[in-house]
Amino acid sequence: MSDYILLIVACIFVNNILLMQYLGNCPFLGVSKKMETAVGMAMAVVFVLVMAGAITWIVDIYLLKAFGLEYLRTLSFILVIASLVQFVEMFLRKSIPGLYAGLGIFLPLITTNCAVMGVCLINIMEEYSFTQALVASFSYAVGFGLALVLFAGVRERIILARVPKPLQDTSIGLVTAGMLSLAFFAFKGMV
């Protein structure tokens, strides 16, 4: 049990996927200008990442490893993720339009979100068990969401501040992401 807690803390805070592992930065900077979109994106990532983590783990263990085809990992993972996202999108649009309106629009962004692919690969490289992979995927996604929401909060204020012209928008966004990353050093070494 405590192992899982450690894993969760490690994935959310210590090895935060965005701030410490540099994964998923494009959507991080893209959708963090407003709190609303940030929350939507965070939820969509949690949703997809858990599913992707589970499916890719199964694909890797029962298909690739079983046949000794590890070199096809990149190819098959991206295919699986892309179709999963598409599937979920179609499913939500039809069956749960309410939820689709909330996070459906963020789903396409996730295909090319390297955090998703990255976490799936990390799961395999760390040789997690299935439950561990699930927990790790979930926690990484929560970490992603947490960072995204915190960042959106800060960024909402920065957009209103008198930032010098050349620094505006992405530039100051990156610097602030750096500051966020700096703050996350608070959790360094805790696990």
Partner: peptide, 17 residues
């Protein structure tokens, strides 16, 4: 944690929040 004194990072973390 990893640091001798946590005040700096603790306050920074809360600044972010």
């Amino acid at each position: 944690g990893a640091f001798v004194d946590g005040t700096v990072f603790a306050i920074l973390m809360m600044n972010v929040a």
